[in-house]
Design a protein around this nucleic acid. Structure first.
Lengths: 338, 338
DNA sequence: TTGAAAGCGTTACCAG
DNA sequence: CTGGTAACGCTTTCAA
């Protein structure tokens, strides 16, 4: 195993002091042009690379941020993470990406890991299970900059999200205007602010149009593929099944779609469907699904920006909204295919 | 900003020497039970956390591995990365995840970054563009353990892949047995071993069944959504268009599907389609697409296992294959829907 | 212009 | 059983 070359090694080869080498390599004044040249050339030739751990030790900073995501394999999150990573790298920061697996224990483990690693800051999307926030409070106490994205909570942390209430309201109104009267809401667990907000928009739209709210049509359980299947089958078995479904999560939209198709029902003929999902996923369905278009890249950018501001001394708490909007496709338009 | 508590701090509070504190905290012999107890308790109370950078500096090891992936937002890769991260964490390693953006320059940048960070090892899937391997050679020279996954190359690195030739052959035979005679092959760029192998399987099957190979039906360009659209439209415009398409990449399968549907052609009635894609993506299409089921979790597991072996002194070069197999769905079965 | 030495947090070795 | 000290790689302050 070839040992890495250090400043000391270079100093010895040239019979000078390490401090001189350090100055030369850093471009600091106080070293003759000739000697500097000689040092720089030797360093280059020997493939010298500064040891980042010595730096970290010295400056008590790691130029590393931690990212906690509920499920990296879910395309929504992997897109956001990709954007965060790109921004961070541009600013000279590394990312430690961790996956909480949508569980509270997982999230705790991730936080502890990142604390242990002394990351300079943390960005995270909360797990679906999380309803206790002591781990976040602890981070605040330790003065570690934290920014929440996508899955946020109002607890004095900066955050980046989308206009959940407005988009849910918009989709619900769209369904009503298309003729739907028994609209089901399929959401994740009720402790997620995201679910609550989207449900809020849904209810608001119903009230606006004077449509009675039916408890049996509001299903907030777990945002997972299986839960979506179960709930949808359940909904379709009702004496008075829904004539439209609004899915508040990508996995739920996908599973609801499949459940409907598997029963031989037609979309949108028998039942309309729309939800929060990626454009390219919507495109894959036949008919394509009316969805809320989110700018995931921008969410990532803003998230890192907020964190970066915090890491460089800005201690204001800000809540940024990246505006999303509905894109109408065939799944909610009676006049069209399938 | 609260300073982190160090062993030295604890030593001073208790009027003992740092070395004693170190021994006590590490559970090493050579410290009286009472004193040890006192030290451990104080450390706990003060929220002592060992500084990993001091460790790295001391032991010249980072317990960190680098992951380079062509496109983290592509679900195939995010699944593999998720699995690698989980395995690494179990073994006490951190992951630095980087995204080459499917470009050679991006890949170079990732490699340099990880070298700079002194990671203990690197796992990578090659970018689509990569045809020059000097960066890999350099890693080998520096004795940094490297394992390739999914996108591999035969260059003396351990690797984990799937049985590309066999699965492509299997799908092609399936198409032929279903009545197809003009089967198109849609692949990524020709410098990818993956593309070559899959094409190889395809050609083998054609030869086996005595079906003439038509050059105009073999399209190996860029594995991207847009390239897939273009190539498919091109294929369908041929005087004698294909009666089946085998897509060697998830994005190509998706885009080919869309292109076909958008022209009002029926699947599999007018044209059959199958390809390499995730099960849940296949499920979303209507009709569902015959695909090759890969065990991505296992690919991640095996990849990290190989790297771990290498990092702990095993210098054998091994090429592991995680067997994948075809799953037949409606898109290749004339007897069924749409 | 250059050198010497301290310090960042931890461990390991050698004395007491 | 405990203390002192050197070492890991680098920067910085002070002295020559």
């Amino acid at each position: 195993m070839k040992k890495n070359i250090s400043q000391r090694d270079i100093a010895q080869m040239l019979n000078v002091n390490v401090s001189t080498v350090s100055r030369a390599l850093k471009g600091l004044p106080g070293v003759s042009p000739e000697l500097r040249q000689e040092i720089v050339e030797l360093a280059e030739k020997q493939g010298y690379r500064p040891n980042p751990f010595a730096m970290s030790l010295r400056y008590n900073t790691t130029r590393t941020i931690g990212v906690i995501v509920p499920d990296l394999s879910f395309s929504h999150f992997s897109h956001i993470v990709k954007s965060i990573e790109a921004e961070a790298r541009k600013a000279g920061y590394m990312c430690i990406i961790t996956d909480s697996g949508e569980t509270y224990e997982g999230e705790l483990a991730c936080v502890e890991l990142l604390e242990k690693l002394h990351v300079d800051g943390i960005v995270m999307g909360l797990s679906q299970e999380t309803e206790d926030f002591t781990h976040l409070e602890r981070l605040k106490q330790s003065n570690i900059p934290v920014v929440l994205f996508d899955r946020t909570v109002e607890l004095g942390f900066s955050s980046v999200g989308i206009n959940d209430v407005a988009t849910a309201r918009q989709m619900t109104l769209h369904l009503i205007d298309g003729g739907a009267r028994r609209i089901a809401f399929l959401g994740g667990s009720n402790q997620m602010k995201q679910t609550i907000d989207r449900k809020h928009g849904y209810l608001e739209a119903l009230r606006e149009r004077g449509i009675p709210i039916k408890r049996e049509l509001v299903r907030c359980n777990h945002a997972s593929f299986n839960a979506g299947l179960t709930e949808t089958f359940d909904l379709l078995k009702l004496p008075e099944p829904p004539d439209a479904i609004l899915a508040a999560h990508g996995l739920l939209a996908g599973s609801a779609f499949q459940a409907i198709i598997s029963l031989g029902l037609r979309i949108p003929g028998d039942i309309a469907i729309c939800g929060y999902m990626s454009d390219w996923v919507s495109d894959m369905f036949h008919p394509r699904v009316t969805f809320v278009k989110q700018n995931l890249k921008e969410i990532g950018r803003k998230t890192f920006k907020l964190l970066h501001d915090q890491m460089t001394g800005d201690d204001s708490v800000r809540h940024l909204i990246v505006n999303a909007h509905m894109e109408v496709r065939e799944s909610t338009q009676k006049g069209s295919s399938s």
